[in-house]
Each structure stands twice: as C-alpha cells, then as structure tokens.
Design a protein around this nucleic acid. Structure first.
Lengths: 133, 133
DNA sequence: AACAATATGTCAGAAAACCTGACATGGTTT
DNA sequence: AAACCATGTCAGGTTTTCTGACATATTGTT
C-alpha cells in the first residue's frame, strides 16, 4: 500500500510539538531547514507544519550531529540514501513485472531480509515507532 | 503491548490541525469539550493539545451527530462503551491468568473474532486508520 | 403558535505561539 | 589569531488560540 507514504508525509505538527518530540530547539529546526535538510510545509499564515517523515528526518539529523557530522555531510547522506531508495524501488518494480515463480521467491526473500528498508531510517535509533504503532 | 495506548493518548495536535483532520469548527470542538465528550490536554499556555484518541472520538461524535444523536446520547454511548471495554479487559486478564489449554483456545478465538475491539471505534466509519498505519 | 433548549456562528479583546532577521558566543578548523 | 559553524537570544510583527458574550436556526415542548 502507498497510502502509508501519503499519511507519513501529511503536514500535521506545529514546531512546538516537534520541539518536544525531537528535543531540538526551534532555532535548530529552522537552521536545518535553512540548510535544506528538511522542507516542512507551511500553513496559510506561514507557520511550519511538519509531517511524520519530517520528524523522522529530524531525529536522524540529531543523531548524525551527535556523531559529529556537519550539515553538508548530512545532506550528502540523505542524497545517497534517497538514491538508493529509488534504485530499490525500481528493482522492486522490475521484479514484480517478471513475476515468475523464480522472481517471486527472490522478491520475498529480499523483503524478508531487509524488511521495511525503504523510507525507514536505516541509521539506527530515534524513529517514531515509539509514537505510532 | 501497551505503549500503543500511550502513543495514542499523547497530546500532539493543536486545534487548527484537528479542525482540518475532522472537518469540525473550533466552536464545535470546544462545545463538545464543554459537554465533556472529550478532554484534550493543555499546553502551559492553556492551548488545547489533542491526541489521536481525541481525534478518533471527535470523528465518532461527528458521525453520531450526523445520525441525530445529541450530546447526552453521545455521552451515554461513550459511557457504556467504556464500561464494556473495561469488562472485556477484566475478562482478558482473568482468562490469561487461568492459562490452561482450554483457556488459551478460548482467548485466541475471542481475539480473532473481535480483533482490536478495545479502544477502537466500534461504531463504524471515521477513525484515523487512514492517517496512521 | 409560542416558548424553551440545543447546536453552531460570529465577534471582541487578550494571551500564546510562531515568524524573520540580526547580533552574540563558544567550539572547531585553518 | 581569523574564520567558520552551530546554536542562543532578543525584538518587532503576524497568526493562532483562548474565553465569554450575543445571535440564530433547528428541534422539542407546552
């Protein structure tokens, strides 16, 4: 299903809530946006509205910063991750197209091995699984 | 697991977001609170913060109102529902205590038949499953 | 029909939350 | 030491939300 991605990208949270959820200051969050690590939506009145994906990202950012990575580094990491995710996506589609017995077994094995690797923070720690089931 | 209930009752959303999610006006939402159909948390600055459970409730309320039920009726419905949920809870605990083979079969059968009936809107339509997986 | 109650709309004034932009500061890197 | 990076802090302005009051349309009651 892909309504899931829609849900996870739906702009819902004001910055105050995000501050609490991530334990980042407003300043930090705005700074990361300034450096294009996140792109939260805006309300009509120009207030930021964050999605679950945004929050996941912020938690990843926090983690990386703790590990000494700087803005540029994080940006690069996100880039390659996204690329990788896209490749995977393509691979999935391809495999699904040639849905022979053989292909099916391959697909299933892959999904079991790296289950949910798309869009889920592959860098351990701090995702939102604790908030939403 | 019960962290789930914690997550679902975590105060996250300001009234503006809830308005959009439920398509209720602020006036309506406050009115329902006034009549104790919901009890959203408050921020330090006295602003309402709604949980996923609150939003589920609001959607139920909306549904019931559409069907002509008034405040008092809805309140009663919620009361009996909660009672029922508690009874079920007790029953569950009891069955789990006497976890004989027999009890186990009974438990499983029950869980399969009415799966997830606790805390999920037993009145059909309008819950948040569309937003969070 | 007249009246009361219910659910919601609308407005006003005040307080809280958020916005951007600027400058300050403590660590790092060069 | 100079420059840079990530963050803190402050100011002035805008948006959002708060409560309380009054208006109104629909429904229920006498």
């Amino acid at each position: 299903m892909n309504g899931k991605e829609i849900r996870r990208s739906m702009p819902l949270f004001p910055i105050g809530t995000v501050m609490q959820l991530t334990e980042l200051t407003a300043r930090q969050i705005r700074y990361y946006e300034e450096h294009q690590l996140i792109s939260p939506a805006r309300t009509d009145g120009n207030r930021r509205l964050f999605s679950l994906n945004d929050i996941d990202r912020l938690l990843e950012i926090k983690d990386l910063i703790d590990q000494g990575v700087n803005m540029a580094g994080i940006k690069q990491l996100f880039l390659v991750k996204e690329q990788h995710a896209n490749e995977q996506e393509q691979e999935m589609k391809k495999v699904k197209r040639e849905l022979t017995d053989e292909g099916l077994r391959k697909l299933l094995r892959n999904e079991l091995l790296h289950s949910g690797r798309l869009n889920s923070p592959s860098l351990r720690q701090g995702d939102l699984s604790r908030f939403f089931h």
